[in-house]
């Protein structure tokens, strides 16, 4: 201890007052060896391999193409629905009824 001001502490001294069972450390180390043998370590590290880059790029490509195809289909469907609605909106209601009745009479 570097300080001289702690007289009572110095009198007591820093001798280790504890003791151990006989052969404690030998037996403890043997127990730890057993523990390590019973629970072997498995190395489970995720390593990125070169082929994984190719696989990831292919998957991204397939997803992208699928997305493009689906959105294109949807656009076409929407366009056709919009055209039908537009044509009907340009015809007045009585013309539609006349057309309907005329076609019924012909039958």
């Amino acid at each position: 201890m570097e300080e001289n001001e702690y007289i009572e502490i110095q009198k007591a001294g820093n001798r280790n007052p504890f003791k151990l069972p006989e052969n404690y450390f030998e037996e403890f180390a043997a127990r730890m060896d057993e523990m390590a043998a019973d629970t072997p370590k498995e190395v489970k590290r995720f390593i990125i391999r070169p082929w994984m880059y190719g696989a990831a790029a292919s998957l991204a490509g397939v997803l992208l193409m699928g997305q493009v195809y689906l959105s294109d289909n949807k656009k076409q469907k929407l366009a056709s629905e919009n055209y039908d609605t537009y044509v009907l909106s340009q015809v007045n209601e009585s013309s539609i009824i006349d057309y309907y009745l005329a076609s019924e009479t012909e039958k």
Partner: peptide, 28 residues
């Protein structure tokens, strides 16, 4: 990480024998 299971166990065993006493007194 590159060691085999046996090599790891051996390293661990050495570690226990080297440090057990110091750590025991620290804890005790």
């Amino acid at each position: 990480s590159g060691q085999t299971a046996d090599e790891k166990a051996k390293s661990f065993s050495e570690m226990v024998r080297t440090y057990q006493e110091r750590l025991y007194w620290h804890i005790r």
